[in-house]
Simulated scan of single mutants.
Amino acid sequence: MTVPTAAAVFDPRLDLELKREVSVPPRLLWRAWTEPDLLMKWFTPAPWRTTACEIDLKPGGKFRTVMEGPNGERNDNMGCFLAVEHEKLLVFTSALGPGYRPTDNGFMTASVIFEPTAEGTLYTAIALHKDEAAKKTHEDMGFHLGWNTALDQLVALAKDL
């Protein structure tokens, strides 16, 4: 399968990537990414929790999550979808809100690509950053551990769907 054209092109100077083959078909991963009640069960690495989620699954549509930490931390993340290709691709950003309205807190743009394989899905997540400092900040926040943990939680949930 070819990567959807709206997917991000990875630049190692500016971007972070998680690529893993998982033993779940794309349709189940898609459901867990696009149904708010399911996304809230896996999206945030434990012990953090996702306590709210709003999804308007279309380009320009709202993508909002609220993440809460074990010590009372709270992150309310508002953004919008830039591209939606059913069971293949999601692209979303915090640089724009619903209806493509600019925000003041753009942190990243992310692509999540679902490619079917004989074993399940080649899952690729790419986080794009505006500069090397933003990439480093995200890396220091624990991108690799956090996104891998969330993916493990996603796979466990999807296997039960």
Rank of each mutant, 00 (worst) to 15 (best):
Ala7His: 09
Glu35His: 05
Tyr100His: 15
Asp140Glu: 10
Glu87Lys: 12
Leu122Pro: 14
His144Trp: 05
Val9Met: 01
Leu96Cys: 13
Leu14Asp: 00
Thr137Asp: 11
Thr103Gln: 09
Leu151Gly: 13
Met40Phe: 08
Thr149Trp: 10
Asn77Ile: 15
Arg27Glu: 13
Ile126His: 02
Cys80Thr: 02
Thr5Tyr: 07
His144Val: 10
Met78Ser: 05
Leu89Glu: 00
Val9Asp: 00
Gly79Asp: 02
Met40Cys: 12
Thr149His: 04
Pro98Tyr: 04
Gly120Ile: 07
Val155Tyr: 08
Leu145Tyr: 14
Leu122Asn: 05
Ala158Met: 06
Lys41Gln: 15
Asp15Val: 04
Glu115Cys: 04
Gly72Arg: 01
Ala95Asn: 05
Val66Tyr: 10
Arg64Ala: 13
Lys159Gly: 15
Ser23Gln: 03
Ala158Cys: 07
Ala150Asn: 01
Pro26Tyr: 07
Ala156Asn: 11
Pro4Ala: 06
Glu132Cys: 04
Asp104Met: 10
Lys135Arg: 05
Phe107Pro: 02
Pro59Asp: 09
Ala83Phe: 10
Asp104Ile: 09
Glu73Arg: 00
Glu119Phe: 12
Asp76Phe: 14
Trp42Cys: 14
Pro116Asp: 03
Arg27Met: 02
Cys80Trp: 04
Pro25Leu: 04
Val112Asp: 07
Thr44Trp: 07
Ile55Trp: 13
Phe107Tyr: 12
Asn71Val: 03
Gly60Ala: 05
Ile113His: 06
Arg13Tyr: 01
Lys62Glu: 12
Lys159Gln: 14
Gly72Trp: 06
Gln153Met: 11
Gly120Ala: 10
Phe43Tyr: 13
Glu73Gly: 02
Thr34Phe: 12
Val3Lys: 07
